[in-house]
């Protein structure tokens, strides 16, 4: 399916849409920690409630927010089974050789699957309310402190923003090349592994060649226009964070703290 330069982004004006990406990214990771830290039933109730509120705040229709969960349904089943049958926990319910269905394993299975689903939904909420360009700008901002340990943050920021700008073109080219090769009879099957790998050459080689060609053109253009290093680039003025951004950050941190306090009980 066609991917827009905006990825999974769904336009909107909800609270989540209006939050600054520089706050949304850390909040996401904080909430992810809260999910992983859930150790009891109340712990899970907390995070599920938080996520439900977030879905409301995002203005996104529920099916959209959980779409990707349905896609990996099979995968989740495998993870659950692997834990349930191989965990080797207490309370063995049945066993066939090395396979042991245990209560501990099933609990663990639910926990792992639950974590994956919750983090997935959190991730969706992030990607659906944030434009890719906002994401890279936020990343560039957030890595600024690394400057103190010698990381060339301006150069990294520039590379990230060039990468983002290339994505739509690369996407189009890849689609065209794929279709052209399929039209010539390319097949990506085969029993034997080396053959299977080799069958991707007609797709992978042209894609990389055309991508590197564009890169070379850009590099030449940049050098021709006197580009020397990323420090001297003119930058757009950064918008200051709003009250809601600080509020969101505080609330998320509090939620995480509560979660870890709950673990103590």
């Amino acid at each position: 399916m066609r991917m827009l330069p905006t990825g999974e982004y769904i336009p909107g004006h909800s609270f989540l849409h209006r939050l600054d990406a520089r706050v949304k990214l850390p909040c996401f990771f904080i909430l992810m920690a809260a999910v992983i830290g859930a150790a009891s039933l109340w712990g899970y109730v907390l995070v599920v409630a938080v996520i439900a509120v977030l879905i409301l705040l995002s203005g996104l229709p529920l099916p959209a927010a959980v779409a990707s969960v349905r896609r990996i349904y099979g995968f989740l089943l495998v993870i659950f089974l692997m834990n349930a049958l191989f965990f080797g926990g207490e309370d063995v319910l049945a066993s066939w050789g090395i396979v042991q269905l245990s209560r501990g394993g099933m609990e663990q299975g639910f926990r792992v699957v639950g974590n994956v689903v919750l983090i997935l939904v959190l991730g969706n909420l992030l990607t659906m309310t944030t434009l890719p360009t906002q994401v890279t700008a936020a990343l560039a901002s957030l890595i600024k402190p690394l400057k103190f340990i010698g990381v060339p943050t301006e150069e990294v920021a520039m590379i990230l923003s060039i990468a983002i700008q290339f994505i739509p073109t690369l996407m189009e080219e890849t689609e065209l090349i794929k279709m052209a090769q399929i039209a010539r009879g390319a097949r990506f099957e085969s029993r034997k592994l080396p053959e299977r790998a080799a069958s991707f050459i007609p797709l992978v080689v042209p894609v990389f060649i055309s991508a590197f060609r564009r890169a070379e053109e850009l590099a030449l253009a940049m050098e021709a226009r006197g580009y020397r290093n990323a420090q001297n680039r003119t930058r757009r003025k950064k918008e200051p964070l709003a009250l809601r951004d600080y509020g969101a950050l505080t609330v998320c941190t509090l939620i995480c703290l509560v979660q870890f306090l709950l673990r103590r009980c």
Partner: peptide, 18 residues
């Protein structure tokens, strides 16, 4: 179908790989 219908897309030189 693949043998009967041939397609030459824009800038077909981009498909070369061998």
């Amino acid at each position: 179908l693949r043998q009967m219908v041939g397609v030459v897309f824009q800038e077909p030189e981009n498909q070369l790989f061998a």
